[in-house]
Design a protein around this nucleic acid. Structure first.
Lengths: 203, 203
DNA sequence: ATAGGATTAGACCGTACGGTCAAGACGCAA
DNA sequence: TTGCGTCTTGACCGTACGGTCTAATCCTAT
């Protein structure tokens, strides 16, 4: 059985699962979401289609696992970076900086994860992973909310401020989708500046 | 024959083509790109699949036509608005304002157009319409370049400045993808401010 | 060594897709 | 009326997909 619940996962199981997840990432990056079929993923993983369905219940479940794998890693990095500071300005700088650094250092995972989140749809066409409402932006909301309350950031609808920061961060991933080998040095320097320019309270 | 070249298009041809393009837009909005099949588009247009292939050579050609239809309209609006001003700051304000107004007033076309551009792939997985290099951003590049040369905007790599402006504008479309009926009032007020905050030269 | 679960491959199935095709319906000029 | 280009349809085809199933193989505990 594919573990899923109950006993501890076997050695081969954890290995195969990681191998298949990696294959899914490279497949999505090479062929794009629409052409990332089970057969292609299996081919890149060096296993049969049925092996994938055996470990993950379905293609949907595999992709969901990939998405979680990618974005919880990103979340963890940002959480850790932010936790090292207390005042909102420093926290925002840590948030943005750690985000950019992680994206820069994990390009394949990030681009594939975004591709899946954006493209994957449920059986009736509704986006499946693209929730993006509360949970995901909780940390950012808290930082910006605190900063506004303390007068560090200028007064702005919270949702708008969150969207602006995320839009500016998305500049990097957009760049990567255009050219996966792009040099992000300039962006990593300037984006934080622009974020603070956009949000800083007038003196 | 489906016109394509030579003689002037028939009355029914122009009507059918517009009807089918509209059906494609609503289909993409209702079902999302992956499920927007020829059959579904035909169903919404009230014609047979073969009628679509008759007027447009293929599904790809139909979608390409939709994309051009949507984005040349947006381009025209921005061109016209910018042409009414001469100094870069006013031109940028006109560019951003007209963009936001047009998007606000043509939500279905815009969301469908973006969905297609983002999701559509060629036979080997390479994005087909997602060029986004020179042509599309020519006007914005010129405005920002002039503004930097005149010291109105701060010195920044041109590409980065362009990406920032577009990212901030994309905030609106992202909002619309989450909720097609969202109120964009606040965004339309604040985005221009934030754009200028990000780009304005220090006094 | 051997039983029994874990694991793997390959054949197979139903479905949905984009596109083709032959045949007819419509409208208009002679 | 007759002919012809325009237009439209529904049936049909080949392909690729996600997923199932069967049978065989591996691994490990006893």
């Amino acid at each position: 059985m594919s573990s899923s619940s109950g006993a501890a996962p076997t050695f081969t199981e954890t290995a195969r699962r990681a191998q298949i997840v990696q294959a899914a990432i490279t497949t999505v990056n090479e062929l794009g979401y629409p052409r990332a079929s089970l057969a292609e993923i299996a081919r890149r993983a060096g296993v049969a289609k049925s092996a994938i369905v055996y470990y993950f219940a379905s293609k949907d479940m595999l992709l969901l696992h990939v998405v979680e794998h990618v974005f919880t890693a990103l979340d963890d990095v940002r959480d850790k970076a932010v936790a090292a500071h207390t005042d909102p300005a420093a926290q925002l700088r840590a948030y943005v900086g750690s985000h950019l650094a992680h994206v820069d250092g994990h390009r394949p995972e990030i681009t594939a994860g975004i591709e899946i989140v954006v493209s994957h749809r449920g059986p009736d066409g509704i986006p499946l992973y693209l929730t993006a409402t509360d949970e995901d932006t909780a940390l950012l909301r808290r930082i910006l909310g605190d900063g506004m309350a303390q007068g560090v950031f200028r007064q702005l609808p919270l949702r708008l401020a969150v969207d602006v920061v995320e839009a500016l961060l998305d500049t990097v991933t957009t760049q990567l989708q255009r050219d996966p080998t792009a040099d992000l040095g300039t962006l990593r320097e300037e984006i934080p500046t622009i974020v603070f320019r956009a949000l800083a309270a007038p003196e």
